[in-house]
Amino acid sequence: MSARIVAVLNQKGGVGKTTTSVNLTHALAKLGKKITVIDFDPQSHLAVSLGSVDPQKSGIDKVLLEGVSLAEQSIPVRKNLNLVVAGPRLQEIEQLTDGGARRGDLLRRALLDGNRDEDFIFIDCPPSSGVLVANALFAADEILVPMTSDYLALQGLSHLVGTIKKFESALKRPYKFSLVMSRYIPTRRISKEVLSVIQKYFPGQILATAIRETALLAECPSFGKTIFEYRPGCRSARDFMALAEDFLQGRMM
């Protein structure tokens, strides 16, 4: 079985990439899907959010730099959910200047290794547009873009779409592309207007459930818990479970 490889991507910081990666993957795991999530950000925020706090533990860095298999570096962190941490050397990938296209193709080749049984591999990308993001784009079948509903995020989305188009053109394959509205504040007029603009340009590509901004989502990473563990049944937990169902069923706004 081949897993769907999903890059959670937005070069802008603070749009909810890691929050989406943590809670969407846990929601999918709770729905019975087998998931591996890769912390592809040298800041290691995903791993911390899932309770893995050892900064010296190797992970995807060793896979890319030393050719260790992904399976060896996978850690079961929840039922149906495996984590591959970033590792202390991941930043070295960003500095690679030699190797031409090969340095952008490290992750894709690492994921070619079969004999795994995941339904999905999620890649939580760093907030940048360098070699790591290029690796994620080479490897991914799908791109999931968390978007906040503010104007500067809209500006960032324009740049991101341009980058994605260039990869599609060069790789000669289109991505499955979807957006998730995160940190959404429904009472703000600017939120509604930004969402309206995004809907105009991406009809049928925005997952149906918007993740509303709550304090709980900001609190749970420090405890190494997902929202389903930190405050089960709360509004954010319900949002993410609905989002997981949207993702699986292709329900869009």
Partner: peptide
């Protein structure tokens, strides 16, 4: 409107759709 300059406006120009198709050829 609270949104002045629309940074995504270029996507509605003809070249965007052409580029999208080009990725499939």
């Amino acid at each position: 409107s609270l949104i002045g300059y629309d940074p995504l406006a270029w996507m509605h120009r003809s070249d965007f759709n052409q580029d999208s198709r080009k990725a499939e050829v």
